[in-house]
Design a protein around this nucleic acid. Structure first.
Lengths: 208, 208
DNA sequence: TCGGGACGATACGGTACCGTCCCATCCATG
DNA sequence: CATGGATGGGACGGTACCGTATCGTCCCGA
């Protein structure tokens, strides 16, 4: 029953969202250009065209600021592809990963945060929650649906299969920095289908 | 025919190798603990127990110092596994990768340098030359030998196959930071064998 | 025997950020 | 139309490195 003796702030005395989003954008750009380790509060403020005070008024530290921005850009609960065929579903997904990893900002930010996460458990957890788990959950649903349709064996090792799905594209783009030729993703999907022992689809031909 | 008017430095007036290796070790440890971006010459000197001058006497910059250390630790022209069977060869190789990526120093350094390489082409080239190409060349020889033995189809997509071989282990250990259960590597090799359409081995039964 | 450059140590001026603090200004709302 | 906290700007002292320079010491090999 403690009545607040102070009236709530109103008017201009309230955090302005457009300032917040200008900061977010600046953080992403600085992350891409300089990386997490070199990112400085002063540079972010400079780039966003705001005072340092605007930053410290919102977050107590660089880590909290980056975490907030990261949460903002978490992978949306994107719809599970429902093309009806496993092959097409997989293609949609690897193309989505490819899209992420060729985005001018994220292509640089993701490897950087990944490296930083080794030393920073809080950051690691945030990345997992914002990006890793949503994507992985989505892919898992696609695989389980294919099992239900009889396109994949019932004893499918989902955990291993998920690794196989995301790893090669990340490896090629973000680690090796090698080009992805136009048909690379199609060929990859064919290999994965074979690795997972996928059967055509509906009728259920019984394999040897 | 210009005779050197100055006699060559001898005795104690020569770079002492044990100092150089103390620095190398310190660089690796600093890289692991703080990362390339945060690595400072002063911290390296401090940790190695040498003066800053010892560093600058050897290399003009942090980048050159790291490149030199990196070249020192380049992957040795390790022998190609020759177990006779593709399955066993692959197992040797994924276990080797697993060993690298669980090494206390390299497990942290590699993702860090990988991220830095996005912004630093010189570093990227050095990594490729010291680590990427040797490993990839070795794996390629193993695959081509298996083709010659008839264990793999003649039209094997070697480039894609190599991605499939290294990517999942890196993905799981260095990106997802997920544990690798005892039999994970075996299960992975089975999946890869199926993906590559591997046939048993010697006799050469002709498939469909 | 002794020359000469590496060695550790440290001082140097300079730059970049940190996080705090203070300011005059602004402004939507109660 | 008064309010009260956000706003950009920037001063502040403090820390950490940079890369250079200058010591006196050390010691192997010519």
């Amino acid at each position: 029953m403690t009545e607040n003796p102070r009236r709530a702030p109103t008017g201009a005395a309230v955090l302005r969202p457009q300032i917040t989003s200008a900061i977010s954008e600046a953080v992403l750009e600085e992350l891409a250009e300089r990386g997490y380790a070199r990112l400085s509060m002063e540079a972010v403020a400079r780039r966003a065209g705001v005072g340092k005070s605007a930053l410290y008024r919102r977050w107590p530290s660089k880590q909290d600021m980056v975490l907030a921005v990261l949460a903002e850009f978490s992978v949306s609960p994107e719809e599970v592809p429902a093309t009806g065929s496993l092959r097409a579903d997989l293609l949609v997904m690897v193309r989505s990963v490819h899209g992420w990893l060729t985005h001018p900002l994220f292509a640089t930010i993701l490897p950087d945060l990944t490296a930083e996460a080794v030393r920073n458990p809080v950051l690691a957890a945030a990345i997992r929650a914002a990006i890793g788990e949503p994507r992985r959950g989505l892919a898992a649903r696609v695989l389980r649906r294919a099992v239900a349709r009889g396109e994949l064996p019932a004893d499918l090792d989902v955990d291993l299969a998920l690794d196989l799905l995301a790893a090669p594209v990340y490896w090629r783009l973000s680690v090796r920095h090698a080009p992805v030729e136009p048909d690379y993703l199609e060929r990859l999907v064919e290999l994965i289908l074979r690795a997972l022992d996928a059967r055509p689809a509906p009728g259920g031909g019984s394999p040897g």
